[in-house]
């Protein structure tokens, strides 16, 4: 091929591969985006309200104003991501038109379609999507997601759901690896995933795309925990800019993700970070306030 090929699945997952071992931070202003970049973030998620505020204020949560996203894109050299509602392919068309680097089809926003997710193959821009288990992850990949993240429970500062979802995916992959080939038909049916992708996961011993942790990560220790559980990188939403010293905490989480297996360095970077976000215990959340159940 002497022709230039853009928007291929290879270049979509390629960007996700470049983000590995890094931290992606939620920001609501260009100033916060600069702080995140200076702290060593590999990308920022541009939005009007962090999940903790969406949770507190209620109402319908939608794609952010493109003007705000463009200002954040102008403020930093690292990739900029933005969120669209589940199934809202026109919000995705708008974000692609303004040139965001990655779209998050996110349960943190109010779903626009209770049956169908976006057909992500139709876009040149790559998508990341949330998953609680292997079947959900593979359904999103079948729709064209170039990156997966755990859903966790966004805006709580409680890591328990991210751990649950990471463990679920890793455990299902471990079991799949030992299954006989003739068992894969029934297994694919049971988890509601395409057979071809189930076979691919068995062959690779991992998801065929990059898999980050998200939803409730608030400390360097949380971030390193998710890395030790086998995640490829970390999203931190409310955990940074809802804490007492965002710049210091952001830099500490970046270092913790690189040195996730080195307890001496983890101890060092965890010192004197000020108050973390206060947070809300997931176990005490009423069912109707849980975001992770959105998406299908």
């Amino acid at each position: 091929m002497s022709e230039i090929l853009t928007g291929s699945f290879k270049v979509k997952i390629g960007l996700a591969q470049m983000l590995k071992g890094g931290v992606i931070m939620d920001v609501v202003t260009p100033e916060q985006a600069k702080i995140a970049e200076d702290a060593g973030a590999v990308a920022v998620m541009a939005l009007e309200r962090v999940p903790a505020d969406i949770r507190a204020q209620g109402g319908v949560a939608r794609m952010s104003d493109p003007e705000l996203i463009l200002k954040i894109m102008d403020a930093v050299t690292i990739p900029v991501m933005a969120k669209v509602r589940i199934g809202h392919f026109v919000e995705a068309q708008i974000l692609e038109a303004i040139g965001v680097d990655f779209i998050d089809e996110s349960e943190v926003l109010t779903p626009a379609d209770e049956e169908h997710h976006i057909d992500k193959h139709q876009f040149k821009v790559p998508f990341v999507a949330g998953a609680r288990n292997l079947g959900e992850a593979l359904r999103r990949i079948a729709e064209g997601a170039a990156m997966i993240r755990t859903k966790g429970e966004a805006g709580t500062g409680d890591v328990v759901e991210a751990v649950r979802h990471a463990r679920a995916v890793m455990d299902e992959i471990r079991r799949l690896k030992t299954m006989a080939d003739e068992e894969l038909y029934a297994y694919a049916k049971n988890i509601g995933a395409p057979l071809e992708l189930v076979r691919e996961v068995k062959r690779l011993g991992r998801l065929p795309v990059v898999n980050f942790a998200a939803g409730g990560i608030a400390t360097p220790a949380d971030a390193a925990l998710m890395m030790q559980l086998g995640m490829d990188g970390i999203f931190v939403g409310s955990g940074i800019f809802k804490s007492e010293n965002p710049a210091k905490r952001a830099a500490a989480i970046v270092k913790a993700v690189t040195h996730y297996n080195d307890p001496a360095i983890l101890a060092e970077v965890s010192k004197g970070l000020g108050e973390p976000m206060r947070g809300r215990q997931v176990a005490a959340l009423p069912e109707e306030e849980r975001l992770a159940v959105r998406g299908w």
Partner: peptide, 15 residues
């Protein structure tokens, strides 16, 4: 020159 070809939608493959 960083990001010389544009943003992610301009990422490409070529021989």
């Amino acid at each position: 020159e960083r990001n010389a070809f544009g943003r992610q939608v301009d990422s490409f493959e070529i021989d």
